[in-house]
């Protein structure tokens, strides 16, 4: 019972944030239709914000797709983790793949009972999907009435949301140093490279550090 309640509250909280995505996407010159399609089809918050961030900053479609896809690679790892728990094939596996995100994996892996793991995955996956898409549409429509996004602080809300997502992972000195290096490297590259490149390049830091120890 509590797994369903946890799934619902997480789904609603995360879904409501879709408002910020909808508004930010329209602000970055994506249409309402394109904004809603990103939430329906891409359905991965970090990747969606990366796409509109790179394109909005004047980057190419290729660097937007590459940055978003690098951010989406962890969903592949979540799939690896969830597959043996869900044991689904065919169309059900296609649906499971689409709702494999941070939240559904987090709720599922927090359960000790195997039935609860399956319940948590599906309830959170569908819950976030429904709320995220409803709120994306509301945010996209609302943005037209908002006017200048800076006047409402929307341009700070997006990086703040990312800090909120990364913060719990900065648990030890090594991780904090790598995060600091990522800031320094990306900002150092900004004046000399096309938009998107400064972010993708920091993946090298992860490869170098992860390779050695």
């Amino acid at each position: 019972m509590s797994v369903k309640r946890d799934s619902f509250s997480l789904s609603f909280a995360v879904g409501a944030y879709g408002t910020a995505f909808g508004a930010a996407s329209v602000t970055a010159h994506f249409s309402v239709l394109q904004t809603c399609l990103l939430s329906l089809l891409t359905f991965s918050g970090a990747s969606q914000f990366a796409v509109i961030g790179v394109v909005g900053a004047g980057g190419s479609a290729l660097s937007a797709i590459a940055t978003a896809s690098l951010l989406g690679t962890r969903n592949a790892l979540y799939g690896v983790r969830m597959a043996p728990i869900l044991k689904v094939r065919g169309l059900k596996r296609v649906v499971a793949a689409q709702v494999t995100i941070d939240e559904s994996t987090a709720i599922a892996t927090a359960q000790s009972d195997e039935a609860d793991q399956v319940t948590g995955f599906w309830h959170t996956g569908f819950g976030v999907f429904v709320f995220w898409n409803i709120f994306t549409l509301l945010g996209a429509l609302g943005a037209k009435a908002i006017g200048n996004p800076s006047a409402w602080g929307l341009d700070a809300a997006v990086p703040a949301a990312f800090i909120g997502l990364v913060w719990p992972r900065l648990v030890d000195t090594k991780t904090r140093l790598i995060a600091g290096a990522a800031i320094a490297l990306s900002l150092a590259l900004v004046p000399f490279t096309p938009a998107g490149v400064p972010i993708i390049t920091t993946a090298l830091l992860a490869i170098i550090v992860g390779w050695r120890a």
């Binding site: 900053a57 990364v166 990522a182 900002l187 400064p198």
Partner: peptide
Amino acid sequence: RINALIPIVLLTALVAVNAVTARTK
């Protein structure tokens, strides 16, 4: 290890770029 670090560096860099840059400045 690499896969665990990748989202951290990418998201941190995205925060920095979104917060303190405008185009190439």
